[in-house]
Amino acid sequence: MLDALTVATSVAALALAAWCGFAAYRDQPTKDWHFIGMAVVSLLALVQLVVGIVQLARGEKPEQGTVIFVGYLLGAFACVPAVGFMSLAERTRWGSVTVAAGGVVLAVLEVRLYDIWGG
């Protein structure tokens, strides 16, 4: 697994969480700029998904099992889009809280992916 990509995705997810957490603190829903941030983080997660699948296809194996690794990859990819859709349904400050929580969850998933791969 590419360590730099994992770190970049984690930092971007935490930045998104802080940004949306600040919006929630100011009692604001998610705005268009937040969705652009979610798209950037989702793109990083997509790149990580592709890199992980390519590494598996090349014969590299994670230390803790392929099935759990793929499961975490898919979960990391789906995390931010899922909370983005949830924040569209909840157009209050709680939509921003949802995205902030999703960013923290994605950062934790990235740490776990690093551990599963054998970092």
Rank of each mutant, 00 (worst) to 15 (best):
C79H: 03
W94P: 06
S10T: 15
A101Y: 04
E60T: 14
F69M: 09
S10V: 04
E110N: 08
A101P: 07
T6W: 01
L88E: 15
A39Y: 07
M86W: 10
A23D: 11
L74Q: 13
V51E: 13
A82F: 10
V97D: 04
A45R: 03
V97P: 04
A45M: 06
T92D: 12
Q64Y: 01
S87H: 11
S42W: 04
I68Y: 03
L56A: 08
V11N: 02
V54Y: 05
S87D: 11
A45D: 03
F77A: 12
V70C: 06
L56M: 08
G102K: 01
L5V: 13
D115P: 05
L88D: 11
V50H: 00
T92I: 10
L44C: 02
W94C: 09
L56G: 09
V51A: 04
A89C: 11
R112V: 12
V97K: 01
M38P: 05
D115F: 00
Y72W: 11
L106N: 00
A45W: 03
F85L: 14
A12L: 02
A8S: 13
V104N: 04
S10H: 01
L46M: 09
V67W: 02
W117V: 13
V50P: 00
G84I: 11
Q55R: 06
T98M: 04
L43S: 15
S10I: 05
I53Y: 04
A23Q: 11
L56T: 12
F69H: 08
G119V: 10
L49A: 10
G118E: 09
W117M: 10
H34R: 07
I53A: 08
I68L: 04
V41R: 01
R58G: 09
F85A: 14
I36V: 14
R93I: 10
I36S: 12
H34Q: 11
L109H: 03
V70A: 06
A78E: 15
L88N: 12
E63N: 10
I36Q: 07
L46F: 03
V104I: 10
L46V: 14
G59V: 08
L88K: 08
P81G: 14
A24Q: 06
D27I: 07
I36T: 14
S96N: 11
L2R: 09
A18G: 02
A89M: 14
L113N: 00
S96E: 14
R26F: 01
G37S: 09
M1D: 15
L73R: 00
S96P: 08
V108R: 00
L106P: 03
Y114D: 15
L106W: 00
F77R: 10
Y25F: 12
A17P: 02
V70M: 04
A100K: 01
L2W: 08
A78Q: 15
V54C: 07
L46P: 10
S87F: 05
A8H: 03
G119L: 04
G119N: 15
A101S: 11
A78F: 12
I68A: 00
V47N: 02
I53Q: 11
A18S: 04
E110M: 05
G65I: 05
T30Y: 04
G119E: 11
A18L: 03
G118W: 00
P62K: 07
V104H: 02
D3F: 05
D115Y: 05
W33Q: 10
D3Q: 15
G75C: 13
I116A: 00
V54E: 12
L74F: 07
V104L: 03
L16Y: 00
G102V: 14
L74R: 09
V83E: 03
G95M: 09
Y114N: 13
